[in-house]
Design a protein around this nucleic acid. Structure first.
Lengths: 165, 165
DNA sequence: CTCAGTGCAAACCGTTTGCAGAACG
DNA sequence: CGTTCTGCAAACGGTTTGCACTGAG
């Protein structure tokens, strides 16, 4: 009754659901296929819109509940770039560990790797006696096209630097 | 009519307010003094509680509005550790650039420095043509005391690794 | 005396939850 | 067929906003 959406990665999700004894449903597969079918960092609104374009009527609650499962399965990663809502990105066919460079003007996200991070994590965890589970590095700034469009940074704050008081 | 709270850093905030042509008020100074007087990463609830303990009746809206000003003045930094609310930390008398190691069990935060970050930021910005403004590195894990209290990590996800598909 | 700040309560908005009806297994 | 899911709408919780009143300059 819908587009085929036979995304190969949905099989992994279905396997996860069966392992957990959870039903495989049409809605879950549609939500999963939407995330697996995009290389972007999708908001729930993005996902809802994409489903609507494919003539799928799936309630927001179901989208949220399915995203929980996708995150638990570790097939999808949740991000919060400080926009007031979360974004979701699948972890397949790309470097499983990568960081994000986020444009503060348009929200554009670039991904990059930083080979020195594991060593930083290990060193810091040792120093404080932590058992590390994950880390995240985000760099914020103006992307190339926003700079070319003439967007500039508007410095605010005290008129003289206060780094050393 | 209150505790003296003559925190020396409130002068900087007052200077900022005057520079901006904004009134210096009792409430603004109380909120600022609360943040400047703590070395923790305070939530708005923490600030409200601290004010109440000092017999200050200041509405939540005023706290939020004052925190906006403090962040704009760059005397205070806003953090989101994914707890569903923001935390605030003053930037005075400490390394202006530092990163955070956050316990996923109890929320305890340790601060650390990572001298390699500026180079990572510069390299990445050059690669993508970004103009960087700031970065943040957070490491999540279990702090020493939560480990000693017997808290363990509960792995979830697909039963076999899917790093390479 | 005027303009901005304050406090209250209502609005906001992304997300979560309760519940009756629909689907999976 | 029992159990879980789905969709709707209401609830939630941190944050923001509108408005009458207070206070700073």
């Amino acid at each position: 009754m819908t587009t085929p959406l036979e995304h190969p990665f949905t099989r992994l999700f279905n396997r996860y659901l069966r392992e957990q004894g959870l039903p495989v449903t049409h809605q879950r597969n549609e939500v999963a296929a939407t995330v697996f079918g995009s290389e972007d960092h999708l908001s729930v609104d993005d996902i809802e819109r994409s489903l609507r374009e494919r003539e799928e009527r799936i309630g927001k609650a179901t989208i949220y509940r399915t995203l929980d499962l996708l995150v638990k399965s570790r097939l999808v990663e949740e991000h919060d770039f400080g926009e007031g809502f979360k974004r979701y990105e699948h972890r397949l066919s790309r470097s499983p560990i990568h960081q994000h460079m986020v444009c503060i003007e348009c929200g554009h996200v670039e991904e990059f790797e930083s080979p020195e991070l594991p060593a930083i994590e290990a060193r810091t965890a040792r120093e404080f006696g932590f058992r590390p589970t994950r880390h995240r590095l985000e760099i914020y700034g103006l992307c190339r096209s926003c700079q070319e469009a003439g967007v500039t940074l508007t410095p605010e704050g005290l008129s003289c630097p206060i780094e050393v008081v």
